[in-house]
Amino acid sequence: MIRDRGNVKWVSMMLPEHVQQIRVWKHESEEELPNELTEWELEELQQVIQLAYDQKLIVTLKIMVDHNLSHYTGIITDLKASTRELSLEMDTIIRRIPLDAVYRAQLENNYCD
């Protein structure tokens, strides 16, 4: 414990792994939780998902589950309107994602040189 102008410094006693975990935790806690999507945003989201499905484009989905945001990148292989879910084929697995959990969808650049 180091005293510097009345402040207690604990940094010298922390392991680098702890400092890294604190930085990750701080970054995650600062990330703003999404609000309800407007009608325009829902329509845009639907169009991006449909385009990615029809043309088999790589898409990044931001998913909101239990107030936690997750990012998944892959190709949408199946859209089921009856169960309101999609299948996203990633590198090693196929993940089934409820459409209600999708918060953002962004097409990735698929240009080949």
Rank of each mutant, 00 (worst) to 15 (best):
S12T: 12
E41L: 11
L37V: 03
R23V: 03
S12L: 07
V19R: 14
H27E: 00
V19N: 11
M14D: 11
E36A: 14
E44M: 15
S12K: 09
S29C: 05
P16W: 14
W25S: 00
Q20E: 13
E28M: 01
S29N: 12
E36W: 08
E36N: 12
W25M: 01
R23S: 08
E30N: 09
E41M: 07
L45W: 07
E28I: 00
E28Y: 02
P34M: 10
N35Q: 13
M13V: 12
E31F: 01
R23I: 05
V24Y: 00
E32V: 04
Q21D: 05
N35F: 10
W25V: 00
E31W: 02
W40M: 12
L33C: 03
E41R: 13
K26F: 05
E32H: 01
E28K: 06
E32F: 02
K26G: 04
I22L: 03
M14R: 12
V24N: 01
H27C: 00
L42V: 13
E28V: 02
T38H: 08
L37A: 06
E39Y: 08
E31G: 03
V19W: 05
H18A: 13
M14Y: 08
I22Y: 01
Q21C: 03
T38R: 11
E36H: 08
E28T: 00
L33N: 08
M14F: 13
V19E: 13
V19C: 13
V19A: 11
M14T: 15
E17N: 13
S29R: 10
S12E: 04
I22T: 05
E31Q: 09
P34C: 07
L15N: 13
Q20I: 07
R23K: 10
M14K: 14
Q21F: 02
M14H: 12
L15I: 04
N35A: 11
H27A: 00
E17W: 04
W40T: 15
E28R: 03
P16F: 09
E30T: 04
E44S: 15
L33V: 06
V24R: 02
L42Q: 15
H18P: 10
I22C: 00
V19G: 07
E39T: 14
N35R: 14
L33F: 02
L45C: 07
E36S: 10
L15W: 08
